[in-house]
Simulated assay, not measured.
Amino acid sequence: MPMNHTRPCPCGLGASYGDCCGAIHRGEKTAATAEKLMRSRYSAFAVHDAAYLLRSWHPATRPESIDFDPELRWTRLEILGTTDGTPFHSEGTVEFRAHYTVGGHAGDQHENSRFTRVDGQWVYVDAVE
Rank of each mutant, 00 (worst) to 15 (best):
M1H: 12
M1W: 07
N4P: 01
T6E: 13
R7F: 15
R7V: 01
R7N: 14
C9H: 07
C9I: 07
C11H: 03
C11I: 07
G12N: 09
A15Q: 11
S16L: 03
Y17F: 15
Y17C: 02
D19A: 14
D19R: 09
C20W: 09
C21R: 00
G22D: 10
A23C: 09
H25K: 07
R26N: 12
E28L: 12
E28Q: 08
K29R: 14
T30Q: 12
T30M: 10
A34I: 07
L37T: 11
L37H: 06
L37A: 10
R41Q: 01
R41Y: 06
Y42S: 08
A46D: 00
H48K: 15
A50R: 12
A51W: 09
L54S: 12
W57E: 11
P59A: 13
A60V: 10
R62Q: 15
P63G: 13
E64V: 15
D67K: 12
D67C: 09
F68K: 10
D69E: 13
P70C: 12
E71P: 03
L72G: 02
R73F: 03
R73W: 05
W74L: 07
R76D: 06
L77K: 06
E78L: 10
E78N: 07
I79N: 05
I79T: 10
L80A: 11
L80H: 09
G81E: 09
T83G: 01
D84T: 11
G85A: 01
T86G: 13
F88S: 14
H89R: 02
S90H: 10
T93I: 04
E95G: 00
E95R: 11
F96Q: 01
F96I: 08
A98P: 04
A98F: 04
H99L: 08
H99F: 15
Y100D: 00
Y100M: 04
V102R: 10
V102N: 08
G103D: 11
G103P: 11
G104R: 09
G104H: 03
H105M: 11
G107V: 02
G107C: 04
H110F: 12
N112M: 06
R114S: 09
F115E: 02
R117K: 11
R117Q: 13
V118P: 06
D119Y: 11
G120V: 08
Q121Y: 14
W122D: 04
V125F: 05
D126L: 02
D126I: 03
A127D: 04
E129Q: 15
